[in-house]
């Protein structure tokens, strides 16, 4: 049966709203989260054509002009356009947060798999270390790393990445321990599959699915940690456009009431973190039907 494009669209749309009926509010959480994330990602990708000014341009208009007219979100004390800085700032924060989440997931998942699969002394020691790091305030650890490594995009990414390794480790190790005892793993062993084959071909694919949700929530958290580091003046050199740094700069003008300098960067950090959180929450609840009873 062939569909016309209009029919196909209508079918897709009814399927879309049908999902909403089936899953209730969780589906809409997922959709709204996806829209926020996609919007900010496209903002970062097409920053050049969206931003009206160069974010470093110190001669875009009057100093500390309130929002309105030519400057959608006003200007800062160096006569830079706040909206353009918001648009370009999305690149920095997305790059750091996503890259950090990738780095920590690769390390965390690999170590968790190996540790859970091999067991024994190695597993015990590594678990103890990971549990200790996990219990420690992530931000303080990131502050220590960032302070030691000095400013820079790569350094701040590493500082953020380190603190999430235990999250993946604990999740994947627990899963590996459970899956290791499954019948199909035993069957694989019985037909003579080697340890690494079992680990990567049998256990890994079954573990990876559960990390998707954690990854999304991890990006959300990494966004807030990145912004926190740069807000504290630790993460990045001033030549880079970043929401956290703009917030720290705008903070000085709070007592005199220049609200736009702090309102917009902070709102964007919240919005981006919210987008990823909603995406993760939506995934979690839809992938786990047991939670849906609630």
């Amino acid at each position: 049966m062939l569909y016309s494009p209009a029919e196909a669209m209508a079918k897709a749309f009814s399927r879309f709203t049908g999902m909403g009926k089936k899953y209730g509010i969780e589906w809409w959480i997922l959709v709204v989260g996806a829209i926020i994330v996609l919007a900010i990602i496209s903002m970062a990708l097409f920053a050049g054509s969206i931003a009206p000014f160069n974010p470093h341009n110190q001669n875009t208009g009057p100093q500390l002009a309130p929002p309105g007219g030519e400057h959608l979100m006003g200007t800062d004390n160096l006569q830079r356009d706040v909206w353009s800085r918001i648009v370009y700032g999305s690149q920095t924060i997305l790059r750091v947060a996503v890259l950090a989440a990738i780095i920590s997931s690769v390390f965390g998942i690999t170590l968790g798999l190996i540790s859970g699969f091999s067991g024994g002394f190695f597993d015990r020691v590594l678990s103890l270390i990971m549990d200790s790091v996990y219990s420690f305030p992530g931000l303080i650890l990131a502050i220590a790393f960032a302070a030691m490594l000095g400013p820079g995009v790569i350094n701040v990414t590493l500082a953020v990445a380190v603190i999430y390794i235990p999250t993946y480790f604990r999740l994947v190790r627990g899963q590996t321990l459970a899956i290791k005892e499954e019948l199909y793993v035993e069957a694989a062993r019985a037909i003579g599959a080697s340890g690494s084959t079992i680990l990567w071909r049998y256990i890994f694919p079954n573990v990876i699915a559960t990390t998707v949700v954690v990854f999304t929530l991890n990006v959300a958290d990494a966004i807030m940690i990145e912004a926190a580091l740069t807000y504290l003046g630790l993460g990045l050199p001033p030549s880079i456009v970043d929401w956290g740094m703009d917030l720290a700069m705008g903070k000085r003008f709070l007592p005199s009431g220049q609200w736009w300098l702090i309102t917009f960067p902070g709102a964007m950090i919240s919005l981006l973190a919210l987008g990823f959180t909603m995406l993760g929450e939506g995934f979690a609840e839809i992938l786990n039907p047991r939670l849906l009873e609630r």
């Binding site: 959480i29 807030m224 926190a228 917030l247 903070k251 709070l254 609200w259 919210l274």
Partner: peptide, 28 residues
């Protein structure tokens, strides 16, 4: 969900702005 995604330092700044600067009833 929303409150957890608001960076604590930004919430602080906004509360400072609202209650400390605009309403001027609380020290910041």
């Amino acid at each position: 969900i929303v409150i957890f995604c608001i960076p604590v330092y930004w919430l602080g700044l906004m509360l400072q702005l609202g209650f400390g600067v605009w309403l001027d009833i609380l020290p910041i």
